[in-house]
C-alpha cells in the first residue's frame, strides 16, 4: 500500500513538473506537413459544426420531447423530401472536403525535381541512412541513456533522461530549403518512417522502395518514431533529423565522407 501511494505521489508530482498537455497535431515545418495540418484542422472544424447541429437538435428533443413534460408522440415517420435533403447536403460537404484533399495528395506524391536523395532502410530495430549522391552512410539507433533507462526494472527516472526514447546515437542531417527525396525500404519486416513536423509517415517494406519528399523550411531538430509494429523493440527505434542551412550541410557531408574513407583504409 505504501509502495502504491508512493507511486501515486511521484506520478502526480511528475504531472506538475513535466506537464505537457498537447492536444493537437504540431504545425509542420515543411510544405507537406503544413498541408496535412491545414487539412486536419479544416475537416475537424467541419465535423465540429456538424456535431453541434446534430447533437443540438438531439438534445433539444431530449429536453423538450419527454414524457415527463407531457409530450405526446407525433405520428410522422417518413418524409422523402427531408431524406433527400439530408442525403444530398452531406454529399455536397464531402465534395467540398475531397477537392482540397485531392490537391494536397497530388502535391505530396510529386517527388520530381529533388536535389538530394536519402535512402532509409529499416532494420529490427534501427535505421540505416544512405546519402545516395554524397556517399555517406551510417546506422542510427536509440541512444544508450534511453536504452538503459527503458529496461524493465532499471530504476532510472526516465523523466531525467534527455529526450527519453526520442534520442539516437547518429542523427540524420538534412539541408533546409532543399527538396529531399527519401527512399524507403526494409531488410527484415515492415517498418514506417515518421517525423510528424517534417512529413507524414510511409512504410518501409522489404522488397519495395517507397518514396517521400520533404523540404524543411526551418533549421532545428525534429524527432519521430517507427510507426509500424516491427517486433519487440518497435517502440525503441526513434528517428532524429537535424535540419541545417545548406552550407553547414555541405560541411557535414565532407566531414563524414572523410571519416568513411578513413574507416575503409584501416
Amino acid at each position: 500500500m505504501n509502495k502504491l501511494s508512493a507511486l501515486l505521489i511521484t506520478s502526480l508530482a511528475s504531472i506538475s513538473s513535466f506537464a505537457d498537455w498537447e492536444v493537437n497535431m504540431p504545425r509542420g515545418v515543411s510544405p507537406t506537413a503544413n498541408a496535412a495540418y491545414d487539412l486536419h484542422m479544416l475537416i475537424f472544424y467541419i465535423t465540429v459544426v456538424i456535431g453541434v447541429i446534430v447533437f443540438g437538435v438531439m438534445f433539444y428533443s431530449i429536453f423538450h420531447h419527454r414524457k415527463s413534460k407531457g409530450a405526446k408522440p407525433a405520428s410522422f415517420h417518413e418524409s422523402t423530401t427531408v431524406e433527400v435533403i439530408w442525403t444530398v447536403i452531406p454529399f455536397v460537404i464531402l465534395v467540398g472536403m475531397a477537392v482540397p484533399a485531392t490537391k494536397t495528395l497530388i502535391m505530396m506524391e510529386d517527388t520530381r525535381d529533388s536535389e538530394i536523395t536519402l535512402k532509409v532502410t529499416g532494420y529490427q530495430w534501427m535505421w540505416k541512412y544512405d546519402y545516395v549522391e554524397d556517399n555517406v552512410s551510417f546506422f542510427s539507433k536509440l541512444d544508450n541513456k534511453s536504452n538503459e533507462a527503458r529496461q524493465l526494472g532499471s530504476k532510472i527516472d526516465v523523466n531525467k533522461v534527455d529526450n527519453y526514447l526520442l534520442n539516437v546515437d547518429n542523427e540524420v542531417v538534412l539541408p533546409t530549403d532543399t527538396k529531399v527525396r527519401i527512399l524507403l525500404t526494409a531488410s527484415d519486416v515492415i517498418h514506417a518512417w515518421w517525423v510528424p513536423e517534417i512529413t507524414g509517415k510511409k512504410d518501409a517494406i522489404p522488397g519495395y522502395i517507397n518514396e517521400l519528399w520533404v523540404d524543411i523550411k526551418k533549421p532545428g531538430v525534429y524527432r519521430g518514431q517507427c510507426t509500424e509494429l516491427c517486433g519487440k523493440d518497435h517502440g525503441f527505434m526513434p528517428i532524429v533529423v537535424r535540419a541545417v542551412p545548406k552550407q553547414e550541410y555541405v560541411k557535414w557531408v565532407s566531414l563524414n565522407q572523410k571519416n568513411r574513407v578513413a574507416d575503409k583504409s584501416e
Binding site: T32, A36, P196, G200
Partner: peptide, 13 residues
C-alpha cells in the same frame, strides 16, 4: 478525418 489520405499520413498507426 482518417479517410482524408494526406491527413491520414499523420494519423495512421
Amino acid at each position: 478525418m482518417l479517410a482524408i489520405t494526406p491527413a491520414d499520413f499523420q494519423y495512421h498507426d
